[in-house]
């Protein structure tokens, strides 16, 4: 009797978390279907449209995975957008002015991400400063450093760096789903190297969160830092590692982002932190920490991408609509989360 009551309770507890994820997946399907119905004549139903959403959001997937890891510990990192801008600027400037090779620049960018994460993680974990204040300072620091590197609009062309250009124009064609273009030539749907990197990151982080000690300790710290410490986990070190992971993943995302845009400017990737946070929250990651999954985050990114794809396909809507809609969605899901939390508290 008591056993069945227990399993029932467990199932219920699982439900409140999976409900959020299910809402997210349903929302994505509804949004995409709405786009297909409204703009089917403009080619929204093509498989390529979906792959394009993935292609243009490859960087965001990496960044959002990092953000999810930080948010699992109950923290937040709003410096990611500026860090991506700094990475792009460094890549473009390094290749065009220092004439360094693409792998060296990528390693440099990753190293900077590592140092950035170490400093932020130290401030949050060991100095116990609020994550928001730390990462806000990090945000302005990175944006300012972007301007220190260069205030020009730089672009990476084949002349600047052949290797990086080849990486970015690398395409994998799918064997099905081709659509004839205006000249009647059938073009197979394709995706680029950025998507491959993003999906590899996604799978690695998914496995890490599920099966490694570090992944599980992220959940434990976010669930309750005090109990985690009592279990013998090093809470400070886990937080530090989470921020390092986030910044490194952001740097990988920055490289993907740069491959997609092939340009750099000071105002690049503004609002990316918002999209990353929104993606994680929409995907069911709790802002209080301890609950979440990168699969949900992927759907969060896809929802974001679908919104901007719909706005772009429409062509008449103002460019600020994606920002407003993302914020509205974020608001909706945050309110939903807090209502769930209130209900849970009342049950107790």
């Amino acid at each position: 009797m008591s056993k069945s009551a227990n399993t029932l309770k467990e199932r219920k507890q699982m439900n409140s978390n999976t409900v959020l994820l299910l809402i997210t997946i349903a929302l994505f399907v509804v949004l995409y279907a709405a786009g297909c119905v409204a703009y089917g004549s403009k080619g929204f139903t093509n498989l390529q449209t979906f792959l394009n959403i993935l292609r243009s959001n490859a960087g965001l997937i990496c960044v959002a995975c990092g953000m999810t890891c930080v948010m699992l510990t109950g923290g937040i990192d709003i410096s990611v957008g500026s860090l991506v801008a700094m990475d792009c600027m460094l890549l473009a400037y390094g290749m065009s002015n220092w004439h360094l090779s693409a792998p060296v620049m990528c390693l440099l960018v990753l190293a900077i991400g590592l140092v950035f994460g170490l400093v932020q993680g130290f401030c949050v974990g060991y100095l116990e400063i609020q994550p928001f204040i730390v990462s806000m300072a990090g945000m302005f620091f990175a944006r300012g450093m972007t301007a220190v590197i260069s205030t020009d609009q730089l672009s990476i062309t084949a002349d600047v760096n052949q290797t990086f250009y080849d990486w970015s124009s690398f395409r994998i064609y799918l064997p099905f789903g081709g659509v004839p273009n205006r000249k009647g030539v059938v073009i197979m749907p394709y995706f680029g190297s950025g998507v491959v990197i993003a999906l590899v990151v996604l799978v690695v982080i998914f496995l890490m969160l599920r099966y490694t000690k570090f992944g599980r300790s992220l959940y434990a710290v976010g669930g309750s830092a005090q109990s985690a410490a009592m279990m013998g986990l090093n809470v400070k070190k886990t937080q530090l590692k989470a921020y390092v992971l986030c910044s490194v993943l952001t740097s990988i995302g920055g490289i993907c982002y740069c491959m997609n845009t092939m340009s750099a400017s000071v105002s690049q990737a503004t609002g990316l932190e918002m999209q990353a946070i929104a993606s994680s929250v929409i995907g069911g990651t709790l802002l209080t920490g301890g609950v979440g999954n990168v699969i949900g985050t992927l759907f969060g990114v896809l929802i974001n991408g679908t919104i901007s794809a719909i706005v772009q396909t429409n062509g008449k809507l103002a460019s600020s609509w994606p920002n407003i809609l993302t914020a509205a969605l974020l608001c909706f899901f945050i309110v939903l989360q807090s209502i769930f939390a209130l209900l849970k508290e009342r049950k107790k």
Partner: peptide, 11 residues
């Protein structure tokens, strides 16, 4: 454009 760097460090 550079001033935020200093302000961030001060904060």
């Amino acid at each position: 454009a550079v001033t935020p760097v200093f302000k961030a460090i001060v904060v």
